[in-house]
Design a protein around this nucleic acid. Sequence first.
DNA 1: TCTGGGGTCCTAGGACCC
DNA 2: TCTGGGGTCCTAGGACCC
Length: 436
Amino acid sequence: MDTSAPRPLPRRIAHLDMDAFFASVELLRYPQLKGLPVVIGGGRRRVDEAIRDLPRGATLADIPISAFPLLKDYAGRGVITTATYPARQFGVGSAMGLMKAAKLCPQAIILPVDFDEYRKYSRAFKQIIADIAPVMEDRGVDEVYIDFTEIPGGQREGGRSLARLIQRTIFEATGLTCSIGVAPNKLIAKMASEFEKPNGISIVHESDLATRIWPLSCRKVNGIGPKADEKLQRHGIHTVGDLAERDRDWLMSSFGRSTGAWMHEVAWGRDDRPVVTHSEPVSMSRETTFDRDLHAIRDRAELGAIFTHLCEKVAGDLERKGFVGKTIGIKLRYADFKIATRDHTMSAFSSDAKTIRRIAGQCLKRVPLERPLRLLGVRVGNLARADADGVRLMEASAKDPAPEQAVHALGDLGDSRRHGSPGSRGPGTAPLFESS
DNA sequence: TCTGGGGTCCTAGGACCC
DNA sequence: TCTGGGGTCCTAGGACCC
């Protein structure tokens, strides 16, 4: 009998990424578009209408290709969410403005975003994975991490055989393809899942660091975005290998203790974050970009209606998911794309639309409103489950007038502090957004 | 040619308490 | 009366991700 401590298995972490997820789901609905450049995005009403007015045969698959809306005819304010691989050949990609995309590929077919449909497929593929390998971390609608380490067969071929099983099962059940990277940790698995896209599997071991990770651009690291990359470039650091050459102390003094130390770990492929199977939401929000820029005074009625609607939406989300929140905030994006946020923390939890609207309205009075607005958002944070405790707290808040008084006091303070601001709007005038 | 919507986490200053 | 320091919460902004 072996009395020695069991040797831990080597960590095998997978990152699975659905291939062109939204576009692929649309192709299941409209198979006649296969092989054509298709973009999903905008969410513009005109595209929705064009789709609704499509001539129908017996099925969606009978709709002639010539009947679909083209990007060049429908490009407005908005961005591409996903593009099919044929569309990507033209340089069109996620987060690109529709205007720019239309220049690159005017003949692409444009479809509106249908989140409900994508969520159905999202739930389906995640359930398939969870049935095979239950240690799964949800990373959004089209991505997950999976811990293969302790799964029977998870170590075989470095994880390739289990990855193949998952890939095949998802395809057979949904018709969708995905790409999987398996590596010693999340950091490398995430990069590896991109190596063989679409429909690929990449297996990376610790010993592959120098050959497969170091040549990659720093931008490929999850957590290094445009700003950090630009700064790295200024220091002559372009690849992960360049980063690994710098010493830890230099990175810490140049990028801050925490970021610098993290960068050093990343460059050497070290990451011990666990795969987290459950997490609680921190905040819920709703925001909307207007079809045209709106002015707080001139377009007061319209803004007021949108504002109320956003508050009702967030309240509905909280209610439906069973949460209450204590911090209520607003977000504005001005026409020049600058963002302002204000929030207020109440003494009790709530998910009530009226309460949200009232507190958010107070926040709005604390932010400059003379420039044209592009976006308005409402956020509820500091969430707690609306179980017995939550309900008690809500009841307490209904009886207790104190929170409301506190808010008014704060609102007045906010206004009086800005007495310097000139005439058009000021304390004492009818509250903005209150007309709806 | 401008750039969606829904999130998370981090930083930094100030208030307040011990 | 002056001094220090730690801890926590709140608020605003910003980077980043899907």
